[in-house]
Write a protein that binds this DNA or RNA. Sequence first.
DNA 1: AAGTGAAGCAACCGCGGCGTT
DNA 2: CAACGCCGCGGTTGCTTCACT
Length: 268
Amino acid sequence: MGRATWFEADGTKRGEWTEEEDRKLIAYIDVYGIGDWRFLPHKAGLQRCGKSCRLRWFNYLRPGVKKGKFTPQEEQTIISFHSTLGNRWATIAQQMPGRSDNDIKNHWNSCLKKRLERNGIDPMTHKPIINLAVKTQSSNTDCGSSSSSMASPPSSSSPSGSVRLLNKIATGISSRQHGVDRIKNILSDPSIASINSQEEEFEQLKKDHGKMFASDDQEEDDFLMWDEEKVRHFMEEIDVTNFETNFNPSSPPPYGVYETGLFDNHLI
DNA sequence: AAGTGAAGCAACCGCGGCGTT
DNA sequence: CAACGCCGCGGTTGCTTCACT
């Protein structure tokens, strides 16, 4: 795979690396170690730019780099770290020895992100995706019309107005909450900074985010549904009308649907 | 068997942070 | 303290492979 080989005007080679180039880079670093990437290519006898050498080394050639498929555990680790760190691939990679940031990023973009979306989870906020494009039902009392002749009984696939209202609110929370400030706060959390070993970190993640993980014997594509009855019960508890009126985007939402486990308690 | 789109992977590009002058 | 250059990071692109029709 990779890109076709070509040469820049100054003679710098671009594109896919050959085995010969790999050998040269490895041999040089074995002897001299990683130094100034700018001059390394010349010293190593490579017609590459320093950036390209660095990328090749860290993503592919360095000792201990793990290639091949990601294990379910690794995937869960990525998802969990992403939920707190966002797209900080280098930071996430530090917690996963052997995996490069590029590898993790690629796996996220090509696989995990889509899988979360399929499962009804917003990959950016790690909160449930709310489908607002659901067809309006005649049984709704808050939509002003009940003239449809195609009336059908309420079901989980045709949420009532109350469900849609809650979904709308939740979407608003999700879209506003995930930001740099939140990430900064999390990064400054000593409980995260103190995570050292991979095992410890995974246990911590399971503790912090365990509820978002499907159990081992659970199908990965199990869909998280906003059950109408539970949603109604939830709304009664939180007084949705008041919630929507007083909601201030610049301040943290009064109900962390995800973090508090409320999502699990009420909506699963 | 051929066509087509999705998935996976490797590498490039551009920007921001940081150290040096 | 501003200017400069290097490095690292995240986003994106381009290519191959695979799966499905």
